[in-house]
């Protein structure tokens, strides 16, 4: 086998680090409680949309070109359409629990789901 001992340690360390990160990611998911979607463009907060059952709101960012169509519906939010080249933001689909997010890198748009109820982990994450 081509792998040396140091290779295996490196792989094990990276595996442990990513598993830990994913675990932390999942542990911080807070589907319960009131939530809202914060929509950022170029790093500035454009709008917040409430995420709750039965409530629908649409928001179009950009003009006829370079646009993202944001749809919040029934406690979830997604980018329903965009004319960016990679379509990663559209393919991300619905997100509904903090700290999930949708990113559109070409147009510098970030949609963050945040919990409006004060979470007890705030001191750690800040």
């Amino acid at each position: 086998m081509l792998l040396t001992k140091a290779d295996k340690w490196l792989i094990a360390a990276l595996l442990a680090a990513s598993a830990g990160g994913i675990g932390l990611n999942l542990a911080l998911l807070s589907p319960a409680g009131a939530q809202e979607a914060q929509i950022y463009r170029d790093g500035t907060l454009v709008q917040t949309i409430k995420l709750r059952a039965g409530y629908r709101e649409e928001l179009r960012l950009g003009g006829t070109e370079r646009y993202n169509l944001v749809v919040a519906d029934d406690g979830r939010v997604r980018i329903a359409a965009a004319d960016c080249p990679d379509q990663l933001c559209v393919r991300t689909g619905w997100v509904s629990a903090a700290p999930q997010q949708i990113v559109c890198l070409p147009y510098r748009v970030v949609i963050k789901v945040v919990s409006t109820a004060p979470p007890d982990v705030d001191d750690i994450t800040k």
Binding site: A19, G21, I22, L24, Y40, L105, R108
Partner: peptide, 18 residues
């Protein structure tokens, strides 16, 4: 995108990089 929240993707990317 001026957002540090992007770093949440890092564990998934590292897992894929292995």
């Amino acid at each position: 995108v001026a957002s540090a929240a992007i770093f949440w993707y890092l564990p998934y990317l590292v897992l894929f990089a292995l």
